[in-house]
């Protein structure tokens, strides 16, 4: 690679939540190991388009830079993924960046993903530990399900699966794969399992697991390789059993 090689970025920008999107192109000096977040930092330092126009720096979110926090999720060359681990060497150029429009856009590549937090509240994505009961001797995790729990706990609510899912969006009230599968994580927990019926009931409501259409895009795009479809099928089993318990009142 020559030293003065440039990488072309075509970025979909938007000045405010309600304004119209437009695209701008930027060139960034190539260097080995360059990733999309690092390239965006270069653009931030010198926000000049290929036409030589000085513009406002591109806004995006990032935090951990090691695929753990989920903040830098955006649409890179049409696919929802983490910008911090999107290596320039592995991307087709010009590189197209766009916000994940399944969420409301705040500005440029920054989106408001708080809908996932609201969904986690709906499915009771926590373990109830406040109460009059004794919690000194914490119950042990089941060693047979601990592996699965560990896997699902990797979920960083980045929203890749919601962006890829055809059933998530303004046309539907589906809460999406990530929050749905979190219900299974907390149902596996030795204390959390006491609230399993509550979580399953929440998943049986409108916008719950019944809105899943089995497109299986979620498992394809999950950056943490969580076997989302497997746990969705398990939850389907669980809600069916819950429905039988409800019908026969047991």
């Amino acid at each position: 690679m020559s030293d003065n090689q440039k990488v072309r970025f075509i970025i979909e920008r938007q000045d405010s939540p309600d304004s119209k999107p437009y695209t701008e192109e930027f060139d960034v000096d190539y260097r080995p190991g360059l990733n999309v977040v690092a390239a965006l930092m270069e653009i931030q330092q010198n926000p000049v388009t290929v036409d030589g126009k000085k513009v406002a720096p591109v806004v995006w979110e990032c935090n951990c830079l090691e695929k753990v926090c989920g903040a830098c999720m955006m649409v890179i060359n049409g696919k929802a993924r983490q910008a911090c681990c999107a290596l320039i060497d592995e991307l087709k150029q010009p590189i197209r960046l766009a916000p994940a429009r399944t969420f409301p856009v705040v500005r440029d590549l920054m989106v408001d993903r708080s809908v996932m937090f609201e969904s986690l509240k709906k499915i009771q994505g926590w373990v109830e530990i406040d109460g009059s009961f004794d919690s000194v001797d914490a119950p042990r995790q089941n060693p047979y399900t601990a592996q699965v729990a560990y896997e699902i706990s990797h979920c960083m609510t980045c929203g890749c699966c919601l962006e890829a899912c055809p059933n998530v969006g303004p046309q539907s009230d589906f809460i999406g794969p990530a929050p749905t599968v979190q219900a299974y994580l907390f149902n596996l927990h030795p204390i959390g399992k006491y609230d399993a019926p509550k979580r399953l009931e929440a998943l049986m409501q409108k916008g719950g697991i019944t809105s899943c259409g089995n497109s299986q895009n979620c498992v394809e795009v999950c950056p943490k390789s969580i076997k989302l479809t497997t746990y969705l099928a398990q939850l389907n089993r669980d809600v069916n059993k819950q429905a039988l318990r409800n019908i026969f009142n047991v």
């Binding site: 049409g78 696919k79 890829a164 055809p166 059933n167 969006g169 046309q171 539907s172 589906f174 809105s211 259409g213 089995n214 497109s215 299986q216 895009n217 394809e220 795009v221």
Partner: peptide
């Protein structure tokens, strides 16, 4: 009602199951 809930995207995510989803 179910079909209207979907925003078919096999053009962007061209996996086999997603094509089946759209074809369905």
């Amino acid at each position: 009602y179910i079909a209207l809930e979907a925003n078919n995207n096999p053009g962007r995510f061209g996996y086999t199951r997603n094509w089946c989803f759209a074809l369905q």
